[in-house]
């Protein structure tokens, strides 16, 4: 009677000044927290990455909790001075971002995130 959601798989690839997290599975109430933990861990690393790329092609479903987590990631990356990219978004993800009026917000983050790289030294928020 209860169907358990497929778990969420994250594959993290760290390059020189950027971190890429490949998301496979559902960003939902049961799983989205995993992504937030992963991102938080990466943002805490030194040197802090200049770009965080979330590769979204493998996102199966996204619910309001998933969106809430993306918004939290948006807030944290902005605070850390890291640019957030939501790459290869599936159509339904775009629809959700569009419906909730957050597409612009995420797009703006990609281009306008603070260009200074907080590579060294303590974070200034």
């Amino acid at each position: 009677m209860t169907t358990f959601p497929p778990s969420l798989h994250l594959t993290t690839v760290t390059a020189e000044d950027s971190v890429r997290i490949e998301i496979t599975g559902d960003l939902d109430y049961d799983n989205a927290g995993l992504l937030l933990n992963e991102v938080t861990a990466r943002l805490g690393a030194r040197p802090r990455p200049g770009d965080l790329r979330l590769h979204c092609a493998g996102v199966g479903a996204i619910d309001s909790t998933g969106l809430s987590v993306l918004l939290m990631i948006g807030r944290r990356t902005a605070a850390a001075g890291t640019r957030l990219h939501l790459d290869e978004r599936p159509a339904m993800m775009d629809r959700l971002l569009d419906l909730t009026g957050t597409l612009e917000y995420f797009t703006a983050m990609t281009t306008a995130a603070a260009p200074h790289t907080a590579a060294e030294g303590p974070a200034t928020t």
């Binding site: 809430s68 918004l71 807030r75 419906l99 909730t100 009026g101 957050t102 917000y105």
Partner: peptide, 13 residues
Amino acid sequence: TRGTLVGVLPEVR
């Protein structure tokens, strides 16, 4: 009608 969600972004339209 359309608009932004409330409670997270500094501004809503």
